[in-house]
């Protein structure tokens, strides 16, 4: 097994969002995690950004399509004439 890669603060910071979004390869993710375990400054930055993303999700996710729109969509599909013509 290869020893885990080591990275510095700059390299960790450039991967920050990819790390928090779960978009890194297992190898790079392990390298970032290793750096965070050793560096209190980066650890705090990552925690701050993680809290920010959680806050964005919590503030924006609640909206659902209004009932009248749901009904309109349902009816327009139900009574659509063009569909059968194009089939």
């Amino acid at each position: 097994m290869k020893p885990p890669q080591t990275i510095d603060c700059h390299a960790a910071a450039t991967q920050l969002y990819e790390y928090l979004d779960g978009e890194l390869t297992a190898e790079v993710e392990a390298a970032v995690r290793g750096h965070l375990a050793d560096c209190a400054v980066c650890f705090k930055l990552f925690e701050f950004e993680q809290a920010y993303l959680a806050f964005l999700r919590a503030r924006t996710r609640a909206r659902a399509a209004p009932d009248h729109l749901r009904r309109q969509v349902f009816e327009s599909v139900l009574y659509d004439k063009d569909r059968t013509k194009s089939e």
């Binding site: 399509a65 209004p66 729109l69 309109q72 969509v73 327009s76 599909v77 659509d80 063009d82 569909r83």
Partner: peptide
């Protein structure tokens, strides 16, 4: 937004 949603869903259906 409502009009756009409606149109999108109808196009998707077609």
């Amino acid at each position: 937004a409502e009009e756009l949603t409606q149109e999108t869903m109808l196009k998707a259906y077609r």
